[in-house]
Design a protein around this nucleic acid. Sequence first.
DNA 1: GAGTTTGAAACT
DNA 2: CAGTTTCAAACTC
Length: 700
Amino acid sequence: MDTPHKTQITPTPTSSLSKFEDSPVFKYIDSLSPIEQAKSSQTDNAFNSLAFLSPSSLFPSPQINCHRESRFSVKRHHFSADLNTRVLQSSNESNASQEASKAAGQSGLYDEHPGCLSNDGSSKGISSDLFDKQSDLAVELPGTSKYDCRSPDDNLEACDALLKKTSLEVVEQERSPFQRSRDEWKERQRSFENERDLRKIRRIKPSEEAAGCGWVAVVSDVADMLTVNTSIIHENSDGQDQRTVDSGTTSFISNIPEFSLDNANNLENAESGDHQGSCKQNELGDSVTDQTSCILSTCLPDKPVVTDSSLKKDDKGEKCSQLSRQRSIRRRCLVFEKSPGFGLHLNSLPNILKGQNPPNKSILSSMKMGEVPSDNGTVVIESSCEAPASIGGTDADHNTPEKKRQKFELVEESASCKRCNCKRSKCLKLYCDCFAAGLYCIEPCSCLDCFNKPIHEKMVLETRKQIESRNPQAFAPKVIRSTDSVLDTWGENNKTPASARHKRGCNCRKSSCLKKYCECFQAGVGCSPSCRCEGCKNSFGRKDGCDESGSDGEGLEACEKNASDKNSHDIVTHKNAEEHRDLPVPSNISRLPLAYSGKFTGSFPHSIRSSSQLCNTPEHGSSESSLCQSKFNSNLQAIPEDETPKVLKHKCLPLILKTNSPPNSKRVSPPHHECSSSTAQRSRKLILKSIPSFPSFCPP
DNA sequence: GAGTTTGAAACT
DNA sequence: CAGTTTCAAACTC
């Protein structure tokens, strides 16, 4: 780093020093310090150090973060203060910051080399360039004697010697105000380091790391910090790992929504390198994972994230396996902060069936119920076959560790399920499931030349905007739960589970709407008049009105009886639709598509529900879940609402709900496998009524 | 796993 | 808006 001094100052150390001492600035500083002239070099060093810092560096202004994440800027301080007070006091603290400094120093890359931070140097780099500069400068300070000396004369050795000499003298003296301020500055810089490291977590990209930017070290530092965070996690006195993240941690977590999967993986990898073999993977692993999951769930701001207690395992062995599973959830979701309404989109339910037949228990158990606000603003209460029972269930049922664990697994799956194999679209078109779902591609994806990654955030956002400009509904849920009025329009006979319908309808010509080529079928909904399909035989409901779902077989005879085949579905009519109304129907929640490009976001409070919260409806016995499994496989019809399309495709069920974002492309509604299976009585139709908790998304 | 089919998305 | 092309998932072998 060249400094002005370098060019302005004469080459000889002596002359430069003397000139410095003669300078007005030096005199001024000197006048402020009781240090005698003889120790001016010390002062000089200090001066040089600080001289390179802009006032804003010392006194960061809020605008530092103004580019992005106002949330962050607000909460950051919280975290900073919290973390710093805890971290800085810990014995590890110095290591973390020192290593961070070291890493930065070794790489020699600061923000003057934005490339190391963000490949595009724009989207992310821009947002926090200022901050990074400040913090980077701060990082340099601690070990900057050499650096400082370099400015005037580039004679490092001379400066070192001088510094040593003067420092020895100064140590004995009363610290000057200037020194005190310097100490304060150092402290502040540590704070910055911490924050900067945290921010860097978000921006590190694998390629950059590979480029030797030393990010591994930084990540490692971050890991340390995250580990420290675990201290914030409280454990039950009984030793059970019932942890909860305190508000501070939560804030922090929510402040780094862009914690990328890659980063997380790197972090994890780096860590596992050291501790591999031991499932101990420690707290860092847990911490990171927990936080990551929190991040996922906290893509919705302003709500505390309660990590599911299931995350904590009783035994380490389980922890290990869990960690490996958790790896899969470390997926960064698109957070379109700049575009109101965008957000984490977990709506796109992953393929539930694919590769998982029958769905595992965890999934099934998690599909208990949920509510989904549909586009039209109605809230669809998702119910499972067990819904009725669950309603009368007890909290105890779902609070068991096992239940929690299942829920967590579900979250993992939901977050990691989506994947694509795009080869030409660069994952920036709706062809890409991940992109369409508002998710970044992750490791499991087999895409080529993928641009749908956090490092290309800007491009992703732009592309998204472009697509939306063409079709504002492009990212809106394709399948919506119809309102009663709409249902009327569609006709009684044509109601599919939950009266859901594909918004645009399908256009099938050869598949007879009996294969997943058909979006309606894939979504588990019947075809509607809006479909232009030919020879529709959609087992969920034909567009001509023939509907197998015909309660209790009424329409079965009239229609082709596919009921017997795997695609036949018993639509369970919920006799007690009213019961659903009694369920805790959060006005702001449910399985909303987490990424929604709509403009309705504003109408929804930012709120997050933890998976446990989401599933706070009494859960049903696993036995029932089992009963439903087989059924579920073949019919996802019970999936009430809006979108289920991807439910069929992926085996993930999102438990993470983001309410404030209205439906994004693929909204996920937990598949409600109806458990009508086991008994005749269960074949009753489940009629899911919408609950007008929300203002209508769609203007009349 | 490779090739084919299919229909949505994108383009003209 | 319709026709065509592109694309990736679904499907088949």
